Computed example of a mutant assay.
Amino acid sequence: MSVHFAAARCTTQSPLARALAKRPVAPAANDNADRNVAIDQSLRDALLHFAEHGLDAANDAARKASDAAGAGSDDEYRHWIGICGKLDGRLANQVASRGKTAEDLLIG
């Protein structure tokens, strides 16, 4: 039995030619091409806090939120509970529920 070579009808349609063809390089997905995207300040603060404290950042933010709640500093408490919420929402909910007293739950 003889073997006959049958060339592809079109080299651009050949599966081998398509596999070996050089494709244009797509732009990076994280190159921040869209500069109009606003980054939330609390997210920026959470990322900076994470960069400084690593994997313990959420626990550190929770401790600072608890300390601020104990000191009565509402602005500082909201700042740290927001950072903790961005890093670990479950931990932030636990801290927030512990920080509420009976007086906080009363209206008026």
Rank of each mutant, 00 (worst) to 15 (best):
L106R: 06
I83C: 05
A51W: 04
I39D: 08
V3S: 13
S97L: 08
K100W: 00
L87F: 01
R63L: 12
I81W: 00
L47H: 01
G54F: 05
M1V: 13
H79A: 11
G89P: 10
S66V: 06
L55S: 11
R23D: 04
D56Q: 12
P27R: 12
S66F: 02
A29I: 06
A7N: 08
L47I: 15
A57F: 02
A29F: 08
A51G: 14
A6W: 02
R90S: 15
D31R: 09
A51N: 04
A71P: 02
I81R: 13
Q13S: 15
R90E: 10
A19Q: 12
A26S: 09
L105E: 09
A26D: 11
R78N: 05
A28S: 13
G70K: 13
K64Q: 15
G85T: 07
L20F: 12
E52H: 09
A29H: 01
N30S: 10
S73I: 00
S2M: 03
D75H: 07
A26T: 13
H4Q: 05
E76C: 10
P27Y: 00
G70R: 14
V3K: 14
A7I: 10
R90L: 08
G99R: 09
Q13N: 07
A33E: 06
Q94C: 03
V3R: 14
A6L: 15
L91Q: 13
V25R: 08
D34Y: 05
S66K: 06
G70W: 00
S97H: 09
N32D: 06
P24N: 11
Q13M: 10
C10V: 10
H79Y: 13
H4V: 12
R98W: 04
D60H: 07
G54A: 06
N36Q: 14
A46D: 12
W80S: 12
V25Y: 00
G89K: 09
A71R: 15
A46M: 07
A65H: 02
D75C: 02
D104C: 07
M1I: 09
A96T: 08
S73L: 06
L16F: 12
T101P: 00
S97P: 01
G85E: 12
K100N: 03
N30M: 08
A65L: 08
T101Q: 03
I83P: 13
I81G: 03
S14E: 10
I107S: 07
A102N: 08
K22R: 12
R98A: 10
L106A: 13
A58T: 07
L106N: 08
E103D: 14
H49P: 00
N93T: 00
K64P: 01
N32E: 08
V25G: 04
K22A: 07
A96C: 01
T12W: 15
A61T: 04
R23A: 06
Q13W: 13
S14C: 15
G54Y: 05
D74H: 10
A46N: 05
S2T: 09
T101V: 11
R90V: 11
R63H: 12
P24A: 10
A51T: 11
D34L: 09
A17Q: 10
C84L: 07
A19D: 11
A62L: 11
S97W: 01
R63A: 13
L20T: 11
A102I: 14
G85F: 00
A7F: 12
N59C: 03
S42K: 09
L87C: 05
A58N: 03
E76R: 10
T101E: 04
A19I: 06
P27K: 14
H53T: 03
A29C: 05
L20G: 10
L16H: 05
D88T: 02
R78W: 05
